Amino acid sequence: MRIDIITVLPELIESPFQASILKRAVEKGIVEVHLHDLRKYGLNKYNQIDDYQYGGGAGMVMMIEPIDKMIAKLKADRDYDEVIYMTPDGETLNQGIANQLSMKGNIIILCGHYKGVDQRVRDLLVTREISIGDYVLSGGELGAAVLCDAIIRLIPGVISDETSALTDSFQDGLLAPPVYTRPAEYKGSSVPEILLSGNLPKIDKWREDQAYARTKNRRPDLLTDH
């Protein structure tokens, strides 16, 4: 997979790809991540990328021309499956979306900034709009990092134990059950005996029941949706 991220602040999104799972994925050659500074395609001697709104109003708007030029340059070199715009009013990211996108080949992620982008960018250039929650950040960079992490960890070979990602919360529409490790008893609190029994079918059934109970208690909306 190749992910191209268009941003006004590339330095804001560099660090997530320099540690842990994302770093290993890049080093293994499983995924390529390229950060592109939109200002390099800015207009005039000031590398302008934003302007005042037509009709008045507070806040600056990212102009269509620099974005169009950069996306056109990227598309001249390869085909892209999606051009994603990170925006609070996009579809809310969930595990299903992450699963879908993890099977794509090439993706462009556009990070919004200021008051957002000229609507024509969304109408003419973007194929999908994604939000990471019902709140507003200073820009789309942190949302893009969240999206990349959710996608990349699902690509085969990124996580050494690939079954781990398949048993995460939300993969089956339920929250994950409780997990325990050594010691079996700590300050009077013990690991459930079923987990020490070695009876794998019963352990699987216990985990299934616990996942359902936890989901019903904490996120009953997930049960309604399914």
Rank of each mutant, 00 (worst) to 15 (best):
R122W: 00
Y135M: 04
G96P: 02
I152P: 07
V117F: 04
T127R: 15
K187M: 07
G112W: 00
T163C: 07
R182Y: 09
G90R: 03
E129V: 10
Q100G: 09
G157I: 00
V191D: 05
T167L: 14
E129Y: 08
S131Y: 06
P178Q: 01
G188Q: 10
L125P: 08
L154V: 01
V136F: 00
D149G: 01
T92I: 12
S190H: 15
T181D: 01
E193F: 13
I159F: 09
L137I: 02
R153I: 01
E185W: 09
P156H: 07
Y135K: 06
R120Q: 04
A144N: 11
F170D: 06
R182D: 03
L195Q: 11
E129G: 10
S160K: 12
D134I: 03
R122G: 10
P183D: 14
D168N: 14
D149I: 00
L154R: 13
P183G: 13
I194K: 14
L110Q: 03
G116T: 00
G188L: 09
P183F: 15
C111H: 02
L147P: 13
S131H: 04
E185L: 13
I151K: 00
Y114G: 00
G140F: 06
D172Y: 08
G143M: 09
D172K: 08
L142M: 13
L154T: 01
T167K: 15
E91Q: 13
E91R: 10
A144S: 15
L154A: 03
G157D: 03
D149C: 00
E129C: 12
I109F: 02
G140E: 07
M103D: 11
L125V: 03
L174D: 05
I108H: 05
R120K: 07
D161W: 03
I159A: 05
C111I: 02
R120V: 04
D123W: 04
D134K: 14
V158K: 00
G112F: 00
T163I: 10
S164Y: 12
V126T: 04
L142F: 12
T181M: 09
R128V: 14
G105S: 07
P156F: 02
V126C: 04
Q95S: 08
L101H: 02
Q119L: 06
D118I: 12
S164A: 14
I107A: 02
L195V: 08
L195C: 11
V179I: 14
Q119I: 09
D168Y: 11
D134C: 12
A144P: 14
S190D: 15
G105T: 07
S189K: 14
V121Q: 04
S160Q: 11
L195A: 08
T92D: 05
R182E: 05
Q95G: 03
E141W: 08
Q171I: 09
G139K: 02
D89C: 04
I151Y: 01
D118M: 08
G139S: 15
S169C: 07
N106E: 11
G90K: 03
L166C: 09
V117C: 03
L166N: 13
K104N: 12
V191N: 06
Q100F: 11
